[in-house]
Amino acid sequence: MTVTSCNIQKPNLGEVIEKYKEFPGSLLDLLHEVQEIDGYLSRDVMQQIAEGLGISESKVYGVATFYSLFKTAPTGQFIIRICESAPCHIRGAQEVLEAIEETLGIKPGETTLDGKFTLEFTSCLGLCGVAPAIMINDQVYGNLTSDRVKEVLLNF
C-alpha cells in the first residue's frame, strides 16, 4: 500500500489498545484509530483487540461489520463513496456513477487493479444542498456532472 508523503508515525496497535482499555464503551473510537494503521481491520488485528480488551472475538467482529466506515478486508488507497439516496438520485447520481465506472473500469464494491480506488455506494452524506455528491476518503465533492467527476478523478 502506498505511504503518504508525510512521515507522521502511525499509531501502534498495542498502544492504541492500551489507551482505550480503561474506557468502557470506547470500542468504536478504538477501531477508528486502529483502522488508520493498515486501512482495514484484519482477522489477526481483531483477535489482538479482543485479547487486549478481554472481550470475545465475535463481539469485535460483530461491531466491525455493523458500521459501514469499518473495513474487514483491504481496500484501495482511495475509497470513493457515491451517494445513492433519493435527493442525489433525482439530481443525476446515476450519470455520475456511470462516469466513474467508465473512467475506472470498476463497479460498486470493486477495487481497481492497481489498488488505487475502491468504489462504494453510501446513503445520504448530508451534502444534498450540492447534490449529487461523493466523498473520496475524507474529502467531499458536490454538484457533480459526468465531466466534473472525471476531472476530480484525474487529480488523484
Partner: peptide, 11 residues
Amino acid sequence: DEGEPGTFKDR
C-alpha cells in the same frame, strides 16, 4: 447523527 436522506440542517 443526522442521516435521514435530504437532511443537512444539523450539520
